[in-house]
Simulated assay, not measured.
Amino acid sequence: MYLFHYYDKRSGPFRSLTMLSNDDALAILEKIKKERPNSFASQRDMNYIVNRSNCEAIVRAKAKEKGIIMDIESPYYFVIGACDWLKSWYEYPEIISIPIGEFDTSKISFTYGDSMPTFSPRVNDGKEYRKKVYTYEEILSIIEKYGLPQEWNVDGAKGPERYIEAQVWTNSPVERYKCAAEFFGKSEI
């Protein structure tokens, strides 16, 4: 199994608006809207930062309840397996894939689907994986039961789940991959 991280090659990998102050995050979002009008992020409204931070706080609390170890306050976001749809989010998409064996899985939480719709009050379809955070062992059971969303919901017609999100709560091995990516490609935003 591999964890995949998608990003715009002009920005570089492993950048998250929730790692910034609210003012800095809003400034970056505004810059993205102006300079990258065809990106998925440019379509987000200015409430996105608050909504994402609130969602992340819920995930953090639920992950702590599950015993997930957190070395950092804001996670790095990955998905389990390749998801071609995520390439469409970026004008110049790049991907880093890392074998799950390189991670300490006790420092990763998972949501079946993106965490934003998973915890959205607007999504109330009664599916068992809504409003839940999983450990590595638990997500394996959910995958066995339901499969990977990117395989059965390629076009999003069957609901908001298009992939399984992994929240990595540590810098290891992320920093090594980040340094390698920055060495081979220039980061601007």
Rank of each mutant, 00 (worst) to 15 (best):
F110L: 13
A82G: 05
Y76K: 07
K66L: 15
S141Y: 09
M116A: 09
T135D: 03
T105N: 09
I96P: 08
P117V: 13
K131S: 03
Y129T: 08
L86I: 14
E128W: 00
Y146A: 06
D84G: 14
T105G: 01
F119R: 08
S97P: 00
S88P: 00
I72H: 01
R130S: 01
I142N: 07
F119W: 06
L148G: 05
N124A: 10
E65F: 10
S106Y: 01
V123Q: 01
L86G: 05
G147W: 06
E91P: 04
I143M: 15
I95D: 01
Y129S: 03
S120H: 04
V133M: 04
I100R: 05
I68H: 00
E102S: 10
E73K: 12
Y129D: 01
E144D: 14
E94D: 13
W89G: 06
V79C: 15
E91A: 09
P99F: 12
C83H: 01
Y129K: 08
P99I: 10
N124Q: 12
C83A: 15
Y90R: 10
A82F: 12
G101S: 15
C83T: 15
T135Q: 03
T118P: 00
P93M: 07
V123G: 00
F78L: 13
F103C: 13
S97L: 12
K127S: 04
E137T: 09
Y77S: 12
M70T: 01
D114S: 14
I80D: 11
T118G: 03
S97W: 13
S115W: 04
A82P: 02
I143Q: 09
C83R: 01
K107N: 05
E91S: 09
S141R: 15
E102L: 14
T135F: 02
K87A: 14
S120A: 11
K107M: 07
R122N: 13
N124D: 11
W89Y: 15
K132R: 15
I69L: 12
G101Q: 11
Y76G: 02
D114G: 08
P99V: 11
I143P: 06
F110V: 09
I98G: 06
E138I: 08
M70P: 00
E91R: 06
L140R: 11
I108R: 03
D71Q: 09
F103S: 12
L148D: 09
I68D: 00
E65D: 15
L140N: 11
S109I: 08
V79F: 00
M116D: 03
Y134W: 02
P117M: 10
T118V: 15
S106E: 12
L140P: 00
L140T: 11
G81Y: 10
F110M: 10
S88N: 13
I139D: 07
Y76A: 04
T105Y: 04
